[in-house]
Design a protein around this nucleic acid. Structure first.
Lengths: 253, 253
DNA sequence: GAGTGGTCTAGACCACCTC
DNA sequence: AGGTGGTCTAGACCACTCG
């Protein structure tokens, strides 16, 4: 079985910029990725060897290697020692990144709207306090929102945040994603732990999501940490399963 | 706020072996990981700088850096330029790896048993053929299994594989995980695309999982590829939501 | 200014695969 | 034998944070 070696158009790496703030490995990876996603490098096709690319672009092998590794981690490429690097067969879905539902929907070109159902400062009960690494009884902001996509209800979102975020304006919560607001306050989300499950919806959720009472909902509990490793937000979400699902790409190391 | 700098016990890196087939970065990472998980390096604590570790262990900085990066990718550590590297606050769950349910359960010390419900060679319909990158009508192996944990039904597993796997013995499918069997045939799973959702169970699933008809099930559809990027297996699974859920850790790049 | 992580270089040796 | 990716080294310069 002959493995086709792709011949790349000259322009592919024409606009690499060594003075750009974007690292070279990132520039190389993004150009490779778009070549793969657009089919310029066909599925199953082999790409040039690390050494060849390094020499062609006049960039050191470790830098090229890092660019390729990033795409391997994304599930776009596959490497075999002694063989080479190939594009994965089959269409590759875009994997779930560390973004909010709001951003997911906007990116897909769907108009997302949010209704704020609750906005209150409570004393943290033991469970919430422990998850947020706070003393029990500390003030926490609790918000509850309903998210619609193209006018159809998609999810009910419950969130708890440390008390210092109590000044998040209700109005702003209806116009933007939570992560977007946090980012504009200089809080960068870095790590999230998720648990995804299912259960029957509550009567409350049934009416908010326009479902039959007792119908299934997809649930997600997410605990997010900022760049310092501090717990920032505890989310408990319920999704209408006909209108939302989670996609991921796993790569063995 | 004072960041405690952890002082590591002398023995932590005592048994590094340069002649081992395990790479040095992997040895360093696993020792660091166990020190973190066991609390020897406390949550929120800072670890030594890359340079310091490199000098102490007489290993080059890029190698140390890779070890640390692996733990950052796992969500155990957080780095800030100009500051240092800290352990993430809060208990870190073990994230979902590219393993089968069978292995997940075994690792948790739960006795998993499997009942084979179906084992047949079919002609691939258009949908299955397209997903497996086969021509429609090609023979495919379809298997259906029920998985129990400690005597309680947990999931119903439907799988389609290319015809060449038709000789997988029914008996062996009851005694081991599918991925385990494939691995023993020299087929290594490398990449998987998953979609997780929810729906009401079918009457069939209700009786197999011992649920009320119409009760919610958690569903997972998984398409796996081997190390050459070829589609190996299409799985459609239904889980009892009170007895199973999916955990992941996401890390922003 | 000193220390940190982020990037990049130019080599080296090895295990593995194909021819 | 020659080419591939996997690992490792010993430097370098930079941006950033802190005292």
């Amino acid at each position: 079985m002959a493995l086709e070696e792709a011949h790349w158009p000259e322009e592919l790496f024409a606009d690499l910029d060594r003075t750009s703030p974007l690292p070279m490995y990132s520039q190389v990876a993004s150009r490779l990725e778009s070549a793969i996603r657009s089919g310029v490098i066909p599925a199953g096709g082999r790409i040039e060897s690390e050494m060849a690319i390094a020499e062609r672009l006049q960039i050191s092998r470790p830098t090229i290697r890092r660019a390729i590794q990033d795409l391997v981690d994304k599930g776009l490429l596959v490497r075999q020692r002694g063989i080479g690097t190939q594009v994965v067969q089959g269409q590759v879905e875009r994997s779930v990144e560390l973004t909010s539902l709001f951003e997911d929907l906007s990116q897909a070109g769907i108009s997302a709207t949010t209704t704020l159902l609750d906005h209150e400062v409570l004393e943290a009960d033991e469970d919430v306090a422990a998850r947020l690494s706070l003393p029990a009884g500390d003030p926490v902001l609790h918000i509850r929102r309903r998210r619609m996509a193209d006018g159809v209800p998609v999810a009910v979102l419950d969130n708890h945040l440390p008390g210092e975020f109590a000044d998040l304006l209700p109005a702003s919560l209806e116009g933007a994603g939570l992560y977007q607001l946090l980012r504009s306050r200089g809080v960068g989300i870095r790590i999230a732990q998720q648990r995804i499950g299912a259960r029957a919806c509550t009567p409350d959720e049934a009416s908010l999501l326009e479902m039959e009472p007792g119908a299934p909902v997809l649930t997600m509990e997410r605990l997010t940490y900022d760049h310092t490793g501090r717990a920032i937000e505890l989310g408990r979400h319920a999704y209408h399963p006909d209108r939302y699902s989670f996609s991921t790409t796993l790569v063995a190391r």
